[in-house]
Structure formats: C-alpha cells, structure tokens
Design a protein around this nucleic acid. Structure first.
Lengths: 146, 146
DNA sequence: CTACATGCAAACCGTTTGCCCACTT
DNA sequence: AAGTGGGCAAACGGTTTGCATGTAG
C-alpha cells in the first residue's frame, strides 16, 4: 500500500464506520494517535495546524465529537472547564492528578474495576462507564521516612 | 433588619468563618441544608426564590463559590456542563449516575476507599481527595407499567 | 454531480464581573 | 458611618451552529 499521507489506526476505524475521510480528519486522527497525553481542543488544534495549517478549530470540535460518538476517542473532564481527549484504543486506565503541579498519572486496577461493577449491580445498574480520579500530593523523601 | 429566615447549621459555619450574614446567604444556606439531592445553580436559585424572591442568580453563584471555598458545600461536575452542589456536612459518598434519566444515586464502599489510598501510595502520592462516578443503565424487570 | 464537510463568524450557555445602590456590622 | 454584599446587565470563555463554499465519493 502507498503512503501519501501517514495512515493511522484511527483512519481505519473511521473507514470501518463508513465516515467520509477528509484531509482534516486524517490530520486530527494522526494527532490523537500519536499523543500519549490528554490534550484539550486548543492543544489538538495547535498540533493539527503544525501538520496542516488548514484545520480550523470548529472542525476540531466537530471531528472530536464525531470520534467520541464513534467510540474512537475518550473525552475527559479534569475539572479545568475544558474537555481533554485521548485515543480509546489505549488500554483502559484511570488517573491520579497531582494537586500541586496538575500532572496526570495513569493507572489501572482490576480489583477496583471489579468492585465497581459489583456495586453498580447491587444498586440495580449495569455499569456502562465510570470516572475515577484520585487527587493527591507527591510524597517527599522525608515523608517516606516517617 | 427583619429576621424571618430560620437558622441552619450552615449559618453557624458561616458565622464561625466570620462571614457577613445577609438574608440572601441565609436563604441559600437553608436551601442547601434542606436539600438531600444535588441541585445545580438554576435549581438552587429556583428554590431560593420560592423562599425569598429577592435572590438573584448572580448572588447564588457568588454565595456558592464562597461556601465552596469555605468548605461548606461540595461542588460536583456530573458531566452536564453545569455545577451541582451538596452540603459538605453530609457523610462522604460517591455517585452512580443513571445515563438515561440523569438520576443520581449515592453509595459508599470502604473497600474501594482503602484501595484508592493504596494505589495512590504505590504511585508515590498521599491521597487528598477523589472523585468516583459510576455511569450505568437501570436493570428494569418489574417496573414496566406503561 | 450530490451530499456531506469545512471555514468563518455569530450565536450560545453557564458563569463571572463592573458599576452603583443597599444592607450589615 | 464605613465598607462589604447584592442586583442588573454586560462581559467572558469554551463550545456550537448557520451559511456559503469546498470536496469526497
């Protein structure tokens, strides 16, 4: 297969869902695909424009909603009043937010995941999703000692 | 001048923090205090106006921020793009959100709380807070009267 | 060629704020 | 009487949308 534009796994997902693939969507897909953090719309737009200046912020909004509805990306709300995104193809994880630096650490704990399912069931619900964020302070060396 | 509004536990907290107690703040405190759900600003305003029509929405915003900063209320973001509040004096709990009706159910699970603390520690953090929301669909088998 | 996607700017919506008057202390 | 709080409406910031044009299929 020829490589005119860089092909991403998201591209394939889009095609599989039958959505029309424009250059903008390809660029945004590539940005998401090659990000290992949780960029917000503005940042995604910035990264997209670096690849192709023709991408407008409105298209970023529209495309991310499209991707989200298609289950291609996951939208987060870390409490900054701005949506943050990451590829849904990344393995599931939750987040620890450093309340001092704002840094985001990822983790996954299957025991908690199991418990959540059970709790939901106990209350008469089928779990369709969850959000768990731990907020904390980094432990200093002297804290560890005591 | 007039002292027509009843005294609430939040009132006392406010006084303890040395904040000036106006009629509006008392009304809003009373609304929060007597709510066992998670009303948003508009709903709090509605309830406040029912007690005293003189309360403006701007004051509701200002007062709730004040209360939040003072640790008197807890602000939630259940993903509707609107802040929801509840009294901080209520015992700790997390939430299950019915993705179909938006209804909010409260629960508390000490096993998960323990695990969260451990996970944070494992990653070098002291847990200072957490947010956990389970999203799910009601399992309906008996309440099907239509 | 047609239907859908994009760019632009205006509209939107929850929230914040400036200004000036009212009220608490 | 001094100074904070409230009401109103305008400002704000992130997000959505109407319209005319561009483009994938």
């Amino acid at each position: 297969m020829t490589f005119m534009t860089k092909q991403t796994s998201i591209d394939n997902l889009c095609l599989a869902k039958g959505m029309r693939m424009t250059e903008q969507r390809r660029v945004i897909a590539r940005v998401i695909d090659s990000s290992d953090d949780h960029p917000d719309i503005e940042e995604i737009h910035r990264r997209a424009v670096a690849i192709d200046p023709k991408v407008s912020i409105a298209t970023v909004y529209r495309t991310l909603r499209l991707f989200e509805d298609a289950g291609i990306v996951i939208k987060h709300d870390f409490g900054n009043n701005r949506a943050c995104f990451e590829s849904a193809s990344r393995t599931h994880h939750d987040h620890i937010i450093d309340i001092e630096s704002g840094q985001v650490i990822e983790f996954c704990d299957s025991t908690i995941e199991e418990l959540q399912k059970k709790i939901a069931l106990k209350h008469g619900f089928v779990l369709t999703g969850h959000k768990m964020e731990l907020y904390g302070k980094r432990i200093q060396d002297n804290d560890k000692i005591k």
